[in-house]
């Protein structure tokens, strides 16, 4: 088995008195696409936030290239090469599209991604580069959010619910670009409500239920029955 790029081991996370994750473990290898699925409130977004360094967790619960990064700070985790596309896009509303991308790239990490490459991936962003971010459609905002994360030249990209609130045709359009992104040599973790899309995109799938890993395995070995059982806990 190849050395994992990202190793999460026994991760607990809490919001005040509420515990959101219980002993979650997962691994992501170089160049792999991993999907995390589960019902609302299962802890998927929390897991991504923990990996991105935005939550206070045990330092060695999250190892990136063998280095403990649990608990952040988030701005240092980015400089190590982990970028998060946050749930709900969260573009900076008072910045233009291009300024949003530039903020994503302000650390100056070396790598294949720059303004030109992001515009090649999502040509519509170049047409709208000087418009305020909130004036974009939902799908375009999602592209800008992905582009903004890519601008930091991550080697591990975390995408939180990129299909949320988008029309199916737009979702297909965005997912169609995923292979081109992965081809640049990064690993990808997607959190997805759309199970069909998740199984189609990822090689390995984790299913969370009430903060615990209820099921995991190769995407092609997981049956619909197994997933529903893990999803709903019935």
């Amino acid at each position: 088995m190849p050395d994992p790029k990202l190793q999460v081991r026994g991760l607990d996370a809490r919001y005040g008195d509420f515990q959101a994750l219980f002993g979650v473990s997962m691994r992501v290898t170089e160049g792999e696409v991993v999907a995390v699925i589960g019902a609302n409130g299962a802890g998927k977004s929390t897991l991504l936030k923990c990996i991105a360094g935005a939550m206070a967790v045990r330092h060695n619960a999250i190892m990136f290239h063998g280095v403990p990064i649990g608990g952040g700070p988030a701005h240092e985790v980015v400089s190590r090469g982990i970028a998060l596309v946050p749930e709900g896009r969260r573009l900076f509303p008072s910045l233009t599209v291009e300024e949003n991308l530039l903020v994503g790239g302000q650390l100056g990490r070396k790598g294949p991604w720059n303004l030109k490459r992001v515009y090649e991936l999502f040509p519509v962003l170049e047409e709208r580069r000087n418009q305020p971010a909130p004036s974009l459609s939902g799908g375009q905002q999602q592209m800008a959010a992905i582009g903004r994360a890519l601008m930091s030249n991550p080697t591990l990209l975390l995408c939180d619910e990129i299909s949320l609130g988008l029309a199916p045709i737009v979702i297909r359009d965005i997912y169609a670009r995923i292979p081109a992104i992965v081809a640049e040599g990064l690993s990808l973790v997607i959190v997805e409500q759309d199970i069909v899309q998740a199984l189609k995109t990822a090689r390995h799938v984790y299913c969370l239920q009430e903060g615990r890993v209820a099921l995991q395995g190769e995407a092609k070995t997981l049956t619909r029955e197994k997933i529903s059982a893990a999803y709903f806990g019935v």
Partner: peptide
Amino acid sequence: RATSDDQPVAQLMG
């Protein structure tokens, strides 16, 4: 401006 807009996300951008 980015920090003013959204502090947690600004942090995620480094």
